[in-house]
Computed example of a mutant assay.
Amino acid sequence: MARLTRVQQQARTRAAVLVAAREEFIAHGYAAAKVDRIAERAELTRGAVYSNFPGKRALYLAVLIELVELVDGVAPAQAAQPSAQPPARPPARPPASLADALGAFARTWLERLPLVDDTAAGGRLQLRSLVGVFDDERGRAALAQLAHVEALLLGLALESGVPGEAPGRRVRLAELVLTLLGGAGFLAETAPGFGDPFDRARACEHLARLDLADRWEPSYLPYVAPAETCREPWSPPAGLTDLLTGEPVDLGADGLVAVLGAGRLAAAEEAVRSARPGDRVTVVVATDDPAETGSLVRLRVRDLAACLRAVFPPESWQRLRLVVDGGAAVASAAGLAAEGDEEEAAVRIRGGAIVARGHGRGAAHAVSTAPITPTVGPSRRTEA
């Protein structure tokens, strides 16, 4: 047998570590799990584990991401048991009404609830529980910002994926639904067996009747600094994947590219609402911590996207792409200075060139509303 290449051996080692880590988390839970025991289960050294994952939290997130991919019927990059994958869900048909959409989404989300006879640790894994995992300020801030992104994604699906409904923003409705479902998940973890999932799904259906007077009118937009207009070469990195569809992202297409740190993810809605008609919107989550912060974003977005794809047709969010950039490659290509978790910047792309660039709060709005002069030379700058 030919010797394994270094890449193949690394992939096998990573897969073995993930299998062992999942067994450890099911047996002991996150808090009591030990990296030493994971290494023993995988018949590897502690160093081999740390060469693939920087710590227990990164390992736990990787196990959860693999679980989400298996449930979604998507083959993980290093799946240890590909034959165990369930069949992919059939393509979703448009919901008949807003209430129908909310009920179908809730039922899909509630499939994660553990059974009464599941172990406590195994049930937490099934729930994708992050209780006690991110107890530091940076992690809690990232989770709060991700909650805004999740509400935006569900809100956009409710706005465009339900035919016959009156137009309007539905992000506040999405927030209520996700709050109800999140509470159901927490109760399933702390008080297993309490409540009826079908009652919760029906409750989500009834939320469609609420008139929340939802409007998109940020008070700060009139005071946003104007964007810099320009015409500069745009050579974006390749190999990035859209977390919503699992497909490669073409950053060279015309549209808006918003680069956001983990502490500014709520600005994703501004990018979507401010974009000009027909513009593709790409939200790039920039992080210097791909193993933890980047994995957290991948986990939460992929998990929600799997539920959305089971209910809404793909065109419900066809204008939006969401990617994670753990190496600041996109920011560098756009001529942006990396600013960590508080980064908020945007560029507008037209004809393979950067034609507007904005920094700070309201950057996406500034870039989208900037006047563009088609005849500007390759390196000249014009006033916004």
Rank of each mutant, 00 (worst) to 15 (best):
G294T: 02
V224Q: 06
L260Q: 00
A337V: 15
P313Y: 10
E269Y: 04
A238S: 15
C307Q: 04
D250F: 01
P222S: 08
S274I: 01
E270I: 00
L244S: 10
E315F: 01
P314N: 05
L240G: 00
Q318G: 13
S332C: 05
A291H: 09
L304F: 08
A346Y: 13
D254S: 02
R300Y: 01
S235R: 07
R348M: 02
I349R: 01
E343H: 15
A310N: 06
T293F: 03
A253K: 06
A268I: 11
G335W: 00
A328Q: 12
R319W: 05
G327T: 13
Y223N: 14
A268S: 15
S295H: 00
A227I: 09
A306D: 08
A268D: 11
L308T: 01
P290H: 11
G252D: 11
D325A: 12
D289Y: 04
G278A: 09
D279M: 01
R319T: 13
G327E: 15
P237M: 07
A291N: 09
R350S: 05
Y220S: 00
V297H: 05
D288K: 03
R280H: 04
V323S: 12
Q318W: 13
D325T: 13
D250W: 13
V272A: 03
D289Q: 02
P248Q: 08
E292D: 03
C230E: 13
L296W: 00
A253G: 15
A334H: 08
F312Y: 12
E315G: 06
G252C: 00
A286I: 09
S332N: 11
D325Q: 15
A213W: 04
A271H: 04
T241Q: 14
A338V: 14
D289W: 02
P233D: 14
G326S: 06
G255L: 10
G263S: 10
A267C: 09
P290Q: 11
A338G: 00
E247A: 15
W234K: 03
R348N: 04
D242E: 03
G255F: 07
V323Y: 05
C230F: 03
R276V: 06
S274F: 09
E344T: 12
R273Y: 11
R302I: 06
V324L: 09
L322T: 08
T287E: 09
P237S: 12
L240D: 10
G255D: 05
V249Q: 01
A345L: 01
V323W: 03
R348D: 07
L320E: 09
E270A: 12
R231L: 05
D288N: 14
W317R: 08
P218R: 07
P233V: 14
A238I: 12
G340C: 08
A258F: 10
R264N: 11
S295K: 07
E343T: 14
G352Y: 07
D254F: 03
R348H: 00
D214Y: 03
D279E: 11
R300T: 06
L308M: 09
V257P: 01
V259H: 04
D214T: 10
D214L: 01
V323M: 13
R273I: 07
E247W: 09
R309S: 13
P226N: 00
A286T: 14
A306H: 08
A305D: 08
E342S: 14
T287H: 02
